[in-house]
Computed example of a mutant assay.
Amino acid sequence: MTVAGENGQSQVDTAAPAARQIGTWAWLGIGVASAVVGLLPWILTGMRLPLQNLWGTDTLPAEMPIALLPFSQYSITLIAGIIVVGAAIAGVVARSTRARQGRFGLAALTAGVLVTQVIATVQAAVVVGNGLRPGRESLIYLVAVVSVATASFVVGALVLVLIARMPRAGALIGLGIAAVAVGWWLGALVVHRPGLVTETQTALLGLLRWVPAILCGVAIGWCGVNTVGRVVAAVTALASAVIGPAIATAVSSATGTRVLARYPAEMLEYGVQVFQQVLGISELTLRPILTAIIVAAAVLAFKAVLRRRRAPLAEACP
């Protein structure tokens, strides 16, 4: 664009044009799509509800009803992975497209994700509730799996907001939590059908153990540790890489123990014991922390090299 200068001569306006805004309905669709991508590992299974120990009738796996979430005490990490990863995807999209969101873009994106996940949770709860045999055990079981989905929903919403809107330190915390969920999500994507696991799948699952720590390290490197807030965020992200899997193991172990189904207090106590035992295993605690630190250091070093290379170019420009 050409404008008149102070001396009357024409000058070129070098200001960048405003980014084209994306409509509110499009953002709503992007939110729904993010939630659906999160559901991908479950969609690939055919979405048949897993066999239930407390099901009211004898039913073959192929005859189980369709459910939008895999409600089962053996699918705790998958439920969490599906919900949190979908929300994290939306958060990353929102952060990378801030200039194109408009006034209600983020709200529409968030609504698309959360409403889709709420619908999936309610539908799965209704299907499971209608199929379980009457009794206290069934009620406790249903409340437990719904509670897991609800907690995952809350964590996912927090992750979305942290990544989408907070400064880098806040976004790092969200990315650290999401990194743990990505590990569960990828594991379900690799082994998305029940049955024997192939050698290739076993090898991939072994490699996937490193993914959360690597992603956490990349996020720390992206954020940097040059302020107190970012250091605190980095420590929080490292803690999530250890505590997240420990919580998942504890919940899966407690809810998967049928003998404790009638005794919620004992189930909770057993879960706490498993959580403490997992944290006490150095291989499960030190390995992800050290891996994340090494990756973060590598990313920070790479960024420093890029800055040094760009500095002479910047000085050479008028």
Rank of each mutant, 00 (worst) to 15 (best):
E269L: 15
Q276A: 14
V272W: 13
A254F: 05
V272Q: 12
V272F: 14
T255A: 09
A265F: 12
E269T: 13
A250N: 01
F275Y: 14
A261N: 08
Y270S: 00
L238P: 08
E266L: 15
V235T: 12
V251P: 04
V259P: 00
S252F: 07
Q273H: 15
Q273N: 15
V242Q: 01
V235P: 12
P245G: 12
V242N: 01
T255D: 04
I247E: 13
E266V: 05
P264I: 06
A233C: 12
A265H: 06
V231F: 08
L238D: 09
A234I: 13
S240M: 15
V274Q: 10
A239D: 07
S253C: 07
I247M: 15
Q273G: 14
A261D: 12
G244M: 02
M267Y: 01
A254Q: 03
E266K: 02
A248Y: 04
S253Q: 07
Y263R: 06
L260G: 04
V231A: 08
A254V: 03
L268Q: 10
A237Y: 06
A239K: 03
P264L: 09
V272T: 11
V235M: 13
G256Q: 07
T257E: 07
S252M: 10
M267L: 11
T257L: 12
L268G: 10
S253E: 09
T257P: 00
Q276M: 14
A234L: 09
E266C: 01
I247C: 14
P245E: 13
A265K: 06
R258H: 10
R262I: 08
G244K: 00
V251G: 04
I247W: 15
R262G: 13
L260F: 12
G271N: 02
V251H: 06
S253T: 12
G271C: 02
G244S: 03
V235I: 15
A239G: 13
E269H: 13
P264D: 07
A246I: 09
E266W: 06
V231M: 09
P245L: 11
P245D: 13
L260A: 04
V251W: 05
T255S: 09
L260C: 04
A265C: 05
T255N: 02
A250F: 01
T236F: 05
G271P: 01
T236H: 01
L268N: 08
M267G: 08
E266Q: 12
M267C: 03
Q273V: 13
S240Y: 14
A233E: 07
R262V: 05
V231Y: 04
V235G: 08
V235C: 09
V235F: 14
A250V: 02
V231D: 03
G244Y: 00
T236R: 02
T249V: 14
A246D: 13
P245N: 12
Y270H: 05
L238F: 09
F275L: 15
A248H: 05
